[in-house]
Computed example of a mutant assay.
Amino acid sequence: MSFLYLDHNTSELLDRLLQGYDKRLRPGFGGLPTRVKTDIMVRSMGPISEKKMAYSMDCYFRQYWTDQRLSFNASVEPIAQVTLNVKMLNRIWFPDTVFLNGGHSYVHMITSPNKFVRLSANGSVYLSQRLTIKATCPMHLEKFPMDSQKCPLFVASFAYGSSDVFYEWRYGDLKAVSIAGGMTMSQFDLINIEAGHFIEIFKGVPHSIVSVNFHLRRHTGYFLIQVYLPCCLLVVLSWVSFWINREAASDRIALGTTTVLTMTFLALDSRDDLPRVSYSTALDVYVAMCFLFVFASIVQFAGIELQNSYQQNQHIRRTSSIVKHGFCPVCVQCLGKFLKCLMNTRNNKFKRHVRNALGLNSVSKIDKVSRILFPVAFTTLNIVYWVSYLTH
């Protein structure tokens, strides 16, 4: 019977409070602005899209304001607080809060609207909603993927100026946003949260705005495994051609072409998830550096071919000079066959000495220099690259 009595009295209380209540007017209309206090509890964040420059988060968004028209005497009534059905919001005034930089955000509706309304005796109304907020996040990607980003969220009234509705953080700027325990993100670490409030003029009317900035630091492990390491391995693979005999032109060209095409694919694939920005990122710089080294290995072989062509021309001139000065062409031909026979011997040490004496050694001086120059240059540029981006 006591429960029935309490339920009946609560229904009568709500009916009395709503008699003559005009939800079109804000609390304290014509007087001081209505102060709306807010706070946010973040349950999860992500995904964060660089291509769309946006982020999303699942959170509890809470608002607290006082409406004296809904106050009652707790000493007379059997209760001091009333938890209301969400349909009660259709009969009372509540703030027209919007996220100024928000996108397609929504209230969770399964299995029922995720909203909570509580009315206290002093007329204070507490509204909590579970939202998925999608908001824009202007990103600076010059240091991608070793970058840190600052993603803001701006909360304000859609229609009311600061003279009618004033927003502030309920627990102050330092405790404006709380994070659920164990929250992790796949791409970023949340390193800091900055909250504040300010006044900004929209269409000639000052509006009260509360803001929060999420400071995020990107994880680089994925890019080290998927991009940086393959690029390094491709560059090292291109150096294998320096140990291939210069007579094996087709093998060296096939190796160089394969590495260049693979580097091109990696360069295009690394930008799939990035917006078409007008500047180069740190990842672009590294991929371009690796591409130049791979391409340089092909250019190096072109230099060797030019050297071979020059040596062959010199050999033809020497032979022509011998014939011209009266040597028997048949003797010269026999001498050539004899040298060829020497070159075909199985004694590699002897064959190497013969080729050296004739200037026909298959190991080019350019190859010998490249075996040292390319690794040293690549290592040096890597040190400069990582020191430059990790220390600034």
Rank of each mutant, 00 (worst) to 15 (best):
S128A: 12
R69V: 06
N114P: 09
K134P: 04
P138L: 05
S105L: 06
S120D: 10
V82Q: 00
P78H: 05
L127W: 02
L70S: 05
V98T: 15
L89N: 05
D67V: 03
K134D: 10
M146S: 01
I110G: 03
V98A: 07
V86A: 07
P145M: 04
K150T: 09
T136E: 03
V155T: 01
K115F: 05
D96S: 14
F144L: 06
P113M: 03
A121I: 15
G102H: 09
S128N: 12
Q129D: 15
R118E: 15
F154R: 00
L131R: 08
R130W: 06
M88K: 02
H140P: 15
W93D: 03
D96V: 01
S128I: 10
T136H: 02
T132C: 09
P152K: 05
H108D: 04
G123R: 13
T132L: 07
S105Y: 08
N90R: 12
S148E: 14
K150W: 00
I133K: 03
S75Y: 07
M139T: 09
S124T: 13
F99G: 13
K87V: 15
C151D: 06
S128P: 09
Y106C: 08
H104P: 07
P113W: 04
A74S: 06
N85P: 05
Q149D: 10
M109D: 05
H140L: 12
D147M: 04
N114L: 07
H140F: 10
C151Y: 00
I92K: 00
W93M: 11
L131M: 13
L89R: 01
A74D: 10
D147Y: 02
L70N: 08
Y126H: 15
V82D: 01
T97Y: 00
V107C: 01
T97I: 13
T132W: 00
S120T: 11
L141Y: 09
S105V: 01
R130F: 08
F72M: 10
V107H: 05
G102W: 01
N73H: 12
Y126Q: 11
V155I: 14
L141V: 10
N114Y: 06
Q68W: 09
V155Q: 01
A74P: 15
S128T: 12
S112R: 14
W93P: 03
N85W: 02
T66H: 13
P138F: 07
V107Q: 06
V76N: 07
G123Y: 12
W93H: 00
P78I: 05
I133T: 10
